[in-house]
Write a protein that binds this DNA or RNA. Sequence first.
DNA 1: CGGGGCGATAATTTGGGGTTATGACAAACA
DNA 2: TGTTTGTCATAACCCCAAATTATCGCCCCG
Lengths: 302, 302
Amino acid sequence: MTNITLKQLRYFDALARHGHFGRAADACAISQPAISMRIKELEEELGTPLVERGARQVRLTAFGEDFVTKAREILRAVDELGDLARASQGRIAGRLRIGVIPTIAPYLLPRIVGRLSALHAGLDIHVRESLTSKLLTELHDGKLDTAIVALPVSEPALTEVALFDESFVLVRPGADRDKPVPDRDGLREMRLLLLEEGHCFRDQALSFCNIQSAMPRETLDGSSLSTLVQMVGSGIGVTLIPEMAVPVETRATDVDIARFGAPEPKRTIGMIWRKSSPLAPQLREISEVVRDVARLARTVAA
Amino acid sequence: MTNITLKQLRYFDALARHGHFGRAADACAISQPAISMRIKELEEELGTPLVERGARQVRLTAFGEDFVTKAREILRAVDELGDLARASQGRIAGRLRIGVIPTIAPYLLPRIVGRLSALHAGLDIHVRESLTSKLLTELHDGKLDTAIVALPVSEPALTEVALFDESFVLVRPGADRDKPVPDRDGLREMRLLLLEEGHCFRDQALSFCNIQSAMPRETLDGSSLSTLVQMVGSGIGVTLIPEMAVPVETRATDVDIARFGAPEPKRTIGMIWRKSSPLAPQLREISEVVRDVARLARTVAA
DNA sequence: CGGGGCGATAATTTGGGGTTATGACAAACA
DNA sequence: TGTTTGTCATAACCCCAAATTATCGCCCCG
């Protein structure tokens, strides 16, 4: 393990440049004895002289020549470290790992990624679609920088900002078009198709109907909103979907979309990140962008 | 002009390695506050955080990851400055860190160390025995000056010189002494004991028998050639060992050693070092010595 | 031989970088 | 829900490394 310091290298670089202790010292804004001592010390550590102190001039030894080129490479590399910092500083750039729940991802993510990429050229976005519980774990483990989930998550270590509220709408077979829209109690009597266990959207829908999740119910579970809507289209039952999913999911299926009267079921979608994350300022800024994108997406949908 | 110091980089390297301020401080033989302060200072100079301080763990930021690789390059370059000094004096002296694979080390290393120490009084030899993959990593990281492994390694940044070829011989229970020597196909039918995954010698033996490593095979894996030979002695199966290992490993066990007919299995042992190493000329000279030593060892064995 | 330029050495000061002790806070625990 | 524990930050202090100024020694030159 060497004890060479960057100061020694800087002084030696200056000395090699000027061929003169006094002027090198000036260049380094130090006194002449200081540089003399540092160079001597460096030579002792290396066990070999670097400069030949002539009567009227100092000249590098052969080894000193080799040494100074290597030393300059190092000094340059160190200076570039500062640039590296400046390059990646402040601005939104580099890798951003974002997790989104499956009942949001297909409808919002393409727009988010598009907008963010357009706004921030140097941004390298990695997307992960997964259930809330898994997203939270990955957030904690540092596998994700942020996530978009339904609030609240109520984790003290996480910051959560609300993005928007979204209503749930009823999806029923096209044939039911003219029937009155059921209320939450009426809904409980119908054959309600839901996502499988683990999706927060399932719990949110159940809670609207005042049904205990644990209660054994005869429901047919679909694995994606698409599947659910397809099944509704074949007359198997009814389902709820977030309104943002309406344009995409009901495009090619004969189903009827009906809004509920008050109290309208809805959930709050938000963005979360670790309070300790150094990206926090950037993430807050990003959350503004996401909110904009979402508002746009929802006005288009409505 | 940056004020970054090598100490800061060394400490940060340690912190990145350990992911823990306290342990990193231990590794640097300083107190925990010292490293905390230095890292904080570094972050202030860079104007950007390097690590995310979680309650239970310290994690590098994306920028920290970039930074640490650059920093390590610099630290290695600085360490090489010391080598440069020694090399420029022409002599072979100072610290020499040499890595050797486990299927070579016991049979060759004592002689190598003995000879080199005798030839070069000022030489301080450090030996490391490990698998090829680990040796290559340590070579790149500047933890080793050179390594003796099976060629080829085909790394563009490394110089490789061949030292010698060594044949593999069959080790079978003493009772099989009078049976004919199997060929590579016959070998496939026998119960072949091999080193565990990761040893290059395992792969070399398998490739001789034309067996895919991935292929699920019923083999009993030993962790050293000694163990393998002992197991063969108890009649469990057969194995291959490099001929250099014969005198040491078969001394006290009732086993039969048989050479294969053509095509005889063999491998090439060579010495490797970083092309950028300032010790390159000395290492080449050392490789001549090692080659001599190996030739001597093998004629004794034969 | 005396003077001036230059680097080395000596004596002294100062602050960077270390230490120990302690605080703050989140996570784990009971 | 307190309590304990692990972990990093902060505070107060200390010391030696590395400056500074002053001076010396030396060689070349006039």
